[in-house]
Design a binder for these strands. Structure first.
Lengths: 222, 222
DNA sequence: ACAGTACTCGTACGTTGTACGAGTGTCAAG
DNA sequence: CTTGACACTCGTACAACGTACGAGTACTGT
């Protein structure tokens, strides 16, 4: 009768979507197989027909998240192209704060991940980087994207746990850690624009450095 | 009779040391409260007298690991000083592969961590960076250290899971991901020196960029 | 109508973190 | 020596987790 499967029927897509919703809303620890099944209005074990096990579930979720990222294209301005993918990846990962840790510690690499990597590598090679430099550049960029994002979601989670305000100076003695005190006050001055700026600052640092390395030793023309 | 507590008595130090040993040897997943107690020759619940709960245990472990890291000092060559802390942190984290993820996702900041941060911030301020630039520089450096290290331990673990050799080209179609294939072969050319070089490459990228930003806008003399 | 396939789910098991409270040893004061 | 307080150990028990197993149900093509 129904050409579209009734909402009571499950599917891998519905399972993954519900799992992502739970993780986004209540955190990755709240994502239980039973809780996921409940959200889907199904029995606990029904999920296992569409997903091999929890690792497979997590892998599928990460896959979808990575799929949201904008791929590096072959526009003439390679720095701009890389900046766009990097910023896109950063923003996507901030939308799904649980994903970054999974991406870095997860078991396997998904197809979407391979596509993302390949696009970035292609962008670098197209810009004239040698295979060796491309390799190094890729890891420098990826480290910054992942490292910065993971740090940001980490302290965001920490902030929430500590309550709304909780004077920062209660956490440590400004006498013992004078530079840290200054650093904390620095962070309280600006809000979101400051954090975003920090990501782009480090990104520009890496990109500018890469540009200099490129002009110092341009790749051999094939 | 015994001035030194008998080895059958536990202590927070003995508990944390045993926990780190288990995590280093068998991975963080093998670290169970029961397994830890067994290693200590004690009953499962005895551990809880010296440690509030598992989070406290993990926090204490991370604290010890961070304590191993070489602090940034005030030597005249600030780039060299930062390179030393960064490399030290990288090496320490490679000795304890489980620690990086905990450091970035863990609940609270420990005293050792605060000391480490303060030393690095102090080094930057001493080099003449303004508070704003110091803030940005610190996060750029930290992101690279953590991001690169976490990526490295991640793929190391992944490699072990995949078995000894397992031709890389079996993982994806070189036709579909040509740049990725080149990247993989690039990685197989050199061994350990290549990976270490990649960390220092990204580090130099950041440090060189910071030096340029510094000379472009030197900090105000206090 | 029937066989087969696709899918659902109730029950049950092993493992985990840890709350609870009863035990043991040591030591200072009476 | 007795007594009580304290520091510390640990056996039992429970709730929550991932998931193996197999019986149940619904849909499909013949």
């Amino acid at each position: 009768m129904s050409s579209v499967p009734k909402p009571s029927r499950l599917s891998r897509e519905r399972v993954l979507a519900a799992a992502i919703e739970i993780a986004d809303r209540d955190g990755i620890d709240a994502l239980t197989m039973r809780r996921l099944a409940e959200e889907l209005g199904a029995g606990a074990m029904s999920v296992y027909y569409h997903v091999a096990n929890k690792d497979d579930l997590l892998g599928g979720m990460v896959d979808l998240v990575v799929g949201e990222m904008e791929l590096a294209d072959g526009r003439p301005d390679w720095k701009e192209a890389l900046k766009r993918t990097a910023t896109s990846a950063h923003e996507v990962l901030l939308r799904h704060p649980w994903a970054t840790a999974l991406l870095l510690t997860g078991p396997g690499v998904s197809d979407a991940r391979l596509r993302y990597m390949d696009a970035m590598l292609g962008c670098l090679r197209g810009a004239g980087f040698s295979p060796e430099l491309t390799d190094l550049a890729y890891h420098a960029l990826d480290s910054h994207i992942m490292g910065f994002t993971l740090w940001l979601v980490g302290i965001s989670a920490g902030m929430e746990r500590l309550g709304p305000i909780s004077n920062v100076l209660d956490l440590f003695d400004p006498r013992e850690f004078p530079h840290l005190a200054e650093h904390a006050q620095q962070h309280l001055r600006e809000r979101q624009p400051g954090e975003q700026g920090a990501f782009e600052f480090g990104l520009d640092l890496v990109l500018d450095g890469l540009e200099r390395r490129l002009s110092a030793a341009p790749g051999a023309a094939p």
